[in-house]
Design a protein around this nucleic acid. Structure first.
Length: 322
RNA sequence: GCAUAGGACGCCCG
């Protein structure tokens, strides 16, 4: 029985949700943990309807079942449904309180978030950090700093959240100072710092940060931040050089990387290169063209006078035109 | 003993 459960967990956590679901149906005696595992997997991949079905079919729900269902709503912006579920819960835990606080914060109800935080029966590090994130999300950077300074404990995520607060508030120097004083850093922290320079087009600073990232933390997001730095600021050649370099070390470029390259082509009027990138994306990398990619291509073709090609491309889109 | 629930990072669009 445990092996069925573990199998389902492994499948679900690696994105093989449909297979996990099939095993679940074949399982002789579905138990609470396996139900919850599947529910959690649907929840974190945004499949809310299936999460709900799973939730309804859990025989005796425990805290994990309720919390996973709540997360399915909160992570998908379903504030009303989250509220309803929260009110229905037979008992509430730190986890569910924290989820509610966050969803309020993320939907512009900072006042509610704060009152949840203040009225929570107990608060742990995650609760504090979530409140911090809610403040940052609502651009209350000064309050965020005050809260940060008053936190009983801080871990890497708390530090990174505060860093993000400075960055989003445009306080780059303060952010850099905080970054420099962090007790430890992980990939996310590095990427936040890199991202702000990349976005502002401070290429020298971005490069310096990028080069400082330890190899194990230098992932797809770091590379796309560098790509963005080049592609958004008119450095077409360097963007493509970075793309070549990236392919040597990173898993494989994703749809974001290709959007960036196409944006660069588009702003340079590089029709030929743009067409190559667009084709190569799906043929060589198996990345399915999304709306962003089509939009860039149509823009590129249209503005370079290839109106017929642009119209043909629009006609071939697997989307409704808009 | 083992397996399931809450917090931070990249492009575009909203």
């Amino acid at each position: 029985l445990i092996s069925w459960t573990s199998l389902i967990a492994v499948l679900a956590q690696n994105g093989h949700l449909d297979q996990a679901k099939q095993f679940m149906e074949k399982m002789p005696q579905p138990n609470l943990v396996s139900c919850n595992t599947l529910l959690a997997a649907f929840s974190s991949s945004g499949r809310v309807t299936e999460a709900k079905e799973g939730f309804n079919s859990v025989p005796e729900r425990d805290m994990a079942s309720w919390s996973s269902m709540l997360t399915a709503y909160t992570h998908n912006g379903r504030l009303e449904e989250a509220k309803g579920l929260f009110d229905e819960m037979p008992s509430r835990s730190l986890v569910s309180w924290t989820s509610m606080m966050l969803v309020y914060g993320q939907n512009g109800h900072l006042d509610y978030a704060k009152s949840v935080f203040d009225s929570m029966p107990e608060r742990d590090l995650v609760a504090w950090t979530s409140m911090l994130a809610a403040l940052v999300h609502n651009s209350r950077f000064d309050d965020a700093r005050l809260l940060f300074d008053s936190m009983p404990q801080k871990d890497l995520i708390a530090w990174t959240t505060m860093l993000l607060g400075y960055i989003q508030g445009g306080l780059i120097f303060e952010g850099k100072a905080l970054f420099d004083s962090m007790p430890e850093r992980n990939a996310t922290a590095w990427n936040c710092m890199l991202g702000v320079y990349a976005q502002k087009g401070h290429l020298a600073n971005a490069t310096k940060i990028f080069q400082g990232i330890p190899a194990q933390d230098q992932g797809l997001i770091s590379w796309s931040a560098m790509l963005a730095a080049y592609c958004h600021h008119g450095h077409f050649e360097q963007g493509f050089e970075a793309f070549q370099a990236m392919k040597m070390v990173v898993e494989s470029p994703d749809e974001v990387c290709f959007t960036l390259l196409l944006v660069a082509c588009s702003s340079q009027g590089e029709v030929y290169t743009g067409r190559c990138v667009f084709t190569s994306m799906s043929v060589d990398y198996g990345v399915v063209a999304g709306k962003q990619h089509y939009a860039c291509m149509v823009d590129l073709l249209g503005r370079s006078g290839h109106l017929r090609s642009a119209r043909e491309l629009i006609g071939s889109m697997p989307f409704v035109e808009d």
